[in-house]
Amino acid sequence: MSALRILVPIKRVIDYAVKPRVNKAQTGVETAGVKHSMNPFDELSVEESVRIREKKSAPGGVEDICVISAGPTKAQDILRTAMAMGADRAIHVEVKEGEDLEPLSVAKLLKTAVEQQKSNLVILGKQSIDDDANQTGQMLAGLLGWPQATQASKVEFGEGDTVSVTREVDGGAETLKAKLPMIITTDLRLNEPRYASLPNIMKAKKKPLEKKTLADFGITAERRLKVLKVTEPPTRQGGGKVDDVDGLISKLKEMGAI
């Protein structure tokens, strides 16, 4: 079996624990001064890649784990985090703040990256928690013409470059089998990401981080979609109190409920 060269695309998003707020112009979510961290689904991808290496679950072994992120300079922080978790090296594609890429552009970028890095397995989060698009993995599989297994909850390797992926579907689990090269997108129950240890955080500072631009991938940040307006969901109306059962009944009648 061929040795695995895993590509793990990751994204810097508003921290899971932070409540996002719509900006005043209603054109998007306020990102300035808000804490950012790695998309939780991407943490699962990094963790899974490192586990495949540590547990020697792939017969051919893992030759390379490369993380890649397209975003502002700050995206290098999450690339360092991924390397502290165990990735070997990182590629940062500089994208100006506010010039976010659409899923199709990301997929095109990744297609070129896969070719450049000679990857034979791409593990990526099923979606990012900022846009919730859930498209990039599928589009990338389409562009490459590779098999895809989305929303993985378990990944196992067999003989002859085969990979079995269990995915949770309505009413049970579905197991897909495909041959490398392939695309896997991760779901919540795949694993529990580790804490990066101090020695590894130190080591990660010395791991290679390659800086690139969109032009290196032959891409521009063109937008096919136009955001018209972003608004928060309507706030919940507070309830009222009634004094007794009669009060409740009259209130319900008033509302036409009974």
Binding site: D15, Y16, A17, V18, K35, S37, M38, P40, T81, A84, Y195, A196, S197, L198, P199, I201, M202
Partner: peptide
């Protein structure tokens, strides 16, 4: 600080919260 306490052998192991969730 982390580097220095690791180098001096004061702490045996450790971790640093990478995001708000880990911090909590």
């Amino acid at each position: 600080f982390l580097e220095s306490v690791m180098d001096k052998g004061i702490v045996a192991d450790g971790t640093l919260a990478q995001d708000e969730t880990q911090l909590r």
